[in-house]
Structures are given as structure tokens and as C-alpha cells.
Nucleic acid binder design. Structure first.
Lengths: 112, 112
DNA sequence: CAAAATTGTCGGTTAAAATCGACATATAAC
DNA sequence: GTTATATGTCGATTTTAACCGACAATTTTG
């Protein structure tokens, strides 16, 4: 995956935010009294990657993190992360001039 | 990466949550009137992966998503995603019995 | 209309993510 | 103490994410 300049050494704020998220996920799991192996099986991933996510590993896929949120019933919060309605800076800029929608050549319904 | 059962076909709720997050990230970028190439260079990633993140690709690393939030000044919201203080289900369970630490199972101190 | 800018896509390369098995080290329970 | 459970770590393998360059398709601008 390339020499992953971002993946290996992310900005400090990114690193700390991920560590905090990982710690929160661990707390959520322990409160629910389930093991790494249990939740890993439930989301269809290996036990290792779940442990790495709980440590805030930056190069771990967002699917792992999101599936953990989902298994704890917290996934709907993800969609409000960059919610345009609460993006104050964006709202301010949008009120000045909304940049017309960028190119989207073909629907191409991406299903990864 | 293994046959990535989760990465290729995540739960429906996970998929939709990621697509919504990606769309929000795109809106945030367009409002700020910057290009994919600009933000990619700013976070130290390739233009492609940023575009993929804006499509909600599950197998993309969380570092990309988080760096985008960071570049838009929204990264602090990530840490509150699974915030133990607002995890109602977790709080309810924690009030019953906290699994971590809390050794010495309190041999039943029913006073009176 | 054409030119410019933005975004999408393709082929090829490289580094590493994710998996599995087995074992070591906590941690909790007996 | 001992046993059982949970988590961390290691090596090896397979899959592929992320990179780069170039080009195609799209949208915006003049």
C-alpha cells in the first residue's frame, strides 16, 4: 500500500482522535461483557484486527471500526460526523457561494 | 488481506453509514471550494483514495477518513463517537457490574 | 462552441492489511 | 495456590490497499 506516509505517521490530532475512539470502543465492549473473539466472530473479522482497532491503529480499514460501532448499536452516529447541517464552517462558506456539484460521470453504483 | 468477508460485503447498515459519511465529506470539501487533489496533497495521500473515501469505500483505512475530518476542522467529533458518557446501553450495563478491574467481587455486603 | 479544470478509470508496482495457527502473557475465576 | 479465560504476539501466507503515471469522461468557464 504505497509507503503510506499518512498511514505510518498521521498528524498528531488524527492519531490522538483514533486512540480515543479505540479506547471508547473497548470500553463499550467491556461494558457489554463480551470478548474480542466474540465480537470478531459477530462482525466477521479476525480477533487481531479488532484488538488493533481498539488501539486506534490508523491503517486499519474503516469497515472494522464501523462494524464495531454497529455491533454496539452506535453506528447511526457515524453518519452525523460531518453532517452538513452542523458543519458551521461549511455552512458559512455555503451561504456565500455554493460550488456547483462536482463531476459525477456515471452513476456507476459502486459496490465494493 | 484474507478474503475480507467484512471488507467486501459489510452489513447493510455499515454500508449505508459509510456512504452517508462519504457524501458528507464530499459536501464539506465542495463547500470549502477545494479539489480532490488539493485535499489529498494536504493530508499526504493520493487523489484516488480521497475520492474512494467520499464514496464510502469500506476497505479504505480509517486514517484517510480521519485525516479528511481533520482537514475540515471536524476531527474532534470522532472521539465522541462511542463516548462512554453517552453510551446509554453501556451505561446501563456498567451500572450493573463493571467487568474491567473491579476485582474483589464484593462478597455481598448487605448491611442491616 | 472550445478550453480549462475537475474527477473517474485503467495498468502496473510495492508494501502491508487481514487471515490463520500456535504460543506467551496477562487477567479473572476457582 | 491452580485452573480457566482473555488478550497479546509471533511467523507464514494470501489478498489488496495505496501509490504512480497517463488517459477518458465530465463539468465549468470563457
Amino acid at each position: 500500500m504505497g509507503r503510506g506516509h499518512l498511514l505510518s505517521t498521521p498528524p498528531y490530532e488524527v492519531e490522538t482522535a483514533l486512540k480515543r475512539l479505540g479506547a471508547n470502543l473497548r470500553t463499550a465492549r467491556l461494558r457489554r461483557n463480551i470478548t474480542l473473539a466474540d465480537v470478531a466472530k459477530r462482525i466477521g473479522a479476525s480477533r487481531e484486527v479488532v484488538g488493533e482497532a481498539e488501539h486506534g491503529k490508523p491503517s486499519t480499514s474503516i469497515a472494522i471500526y464501523t462494524a464495531l460501532l454497529w455491533s454496539y448499536g452506535l453506528v447511526e452516529r457515524l453518519g452525523s460526523l460531518a453532517d452538513p447541517a452542523t458543519d458551521d464552517e461549511g455552512l458559512r462558506l455555503a451561504s456565500l457561494r455554493e460550488r456547483r456539484n462536482a463531476s459525477t460521470p456515471q452513476p456507476l453504483d459502486d459496490d465494493f
